[in-house]
Each structure stands twice: as C-alpha cells, then as structure tokens.
Simulated scan of single mutants.
Amino acid sequence: MSKCTVSISEGSILDLEAVMAVMEDSFDPAYGEAWTAAQCAGLMPLPGVWLSVARQHEKVVGFALGRIVLTEAELLLLAVKRIGRRRGVGQLLLDRFRLIASAKGASKLHLEVRDGNPAMNLYRRAGFTEAGRRRNYYTGRDGQIYDALTLMRETFI
C-alpha cells in the first residue's frame, strides 16, 4: 500500500461497519482502547463531529474521527489497518484532521493516547506535545492499568 493509491474523503454513518472493521483490526484488545459501534454511532451525528475515511481500491483502510467545540478540536480516534501501517496512511489522516479543524476555526488541537502507544511517534512528528496525563485511565483485559497522555498543538501548519 502506498500513499499515492490511498484517497481520503468525508465519511458518514454509512461507513460505520467498515470503520468498526478497521478498529477491530487496529486496536489490540489487551489495552481496552477501542470504542464500540454504539459509541461511534452516538457521537457521529452530533454537531461539530466529522469522520475522514482512507480508502484503497474502494476498501476502507483507515479513519479519523474528530470534533470541534468553539476554537478547540479533538482527534477522538485515528486507526489504520495493520497492513497499512508505516506507509503514510496515518499521516494522511492526521494531516486531513488538522486541515479540517483549522478550516472550522480551531486554534488548538487535542488528542489522547495510551502511554506507550507507538502512534506517539506520529503525533510527536506532527508537533503535538504532552499537555497532561490521566493516571490509570485504561484497563487492559488482563487487569493491567495504563496512563493516558493528553497531547496538544496549535493549528498552524
């Protein structure tokens, strides 16, 4: 999978089944990070929420779910199927999130990530820095507890 063969477009509730398949493939259940279909479906129709979907050959290979409130946007979820990792898909989705958030008037971007998640490399390269820590936020299926890191950056590109 290469960058040039991946297209990013606006998604909708009609993409929920494909989004959930990406989430199932992407989020290791050992960490307790994945959302349920009901959680996604409940959030998607709310004002200020948008879904970006990455497709390759018409198949969904990744997605980003964002929302904006006043001048602050939050990246709620970003996931890429395992087969598409380290090929630029996550970067394309993050870039689109940043552009949409900026176009909607955001001056600050936020996200939350499990401490130790390899996606931290992507977020750091994009200029996100640690703004806070939520101790003992995630509980893995084995009972292990993980902190959540809150990250922030200004919207300028």
Rank of each mutant, 00 (worst) to 15 (best):
S7K: 11
S7M: 10
E10Q: 11
S12Y: 01
I13F: 01
L14G: 10
L14D: 15
D15R: 03
E17P: 10
V19K: 06
V19I: 08
M23D: 14
D25F: 02
S26R: 09
D28N: 12
Y31N: 10
Y31P: 14
E33V: 01
W35N: 13
T36I: 03
A38L: 06
A38P: 08
Q39K: 08
C40D: 09
C40I: 13
G42E: 04
M44L: 12
M44E: 07
M44F: 04
L46V: 05
W50I: 02
L51M: 01
V53A: 01
A54E: 02
E58P: 02
T71Q: 09
E72P: 02
L75V: 03
L76K: 05
L77T: 09
A79M: 06
R87P: 05
G90F: 00
L93N: 08
L93F: 05
L93A: 03
L93R: 07
S102W: 14
K104W: 11
A106M: 09
L109M: 15
V113C: 12
D115Q: 14
P118V: 07
A119D: 13
A119R: 15
M120A: 14
M120C: 10
M120K: 13
Y123G: 13
R124Q: 15
R125P: 09
G127A: 12
G127Q: 15
T129M: 15
A131C: 12
G132P: 11
N136I: 04
Y137F: 13
Q144C: 06
D147G: 02
A148Q: 04
I157M: 13
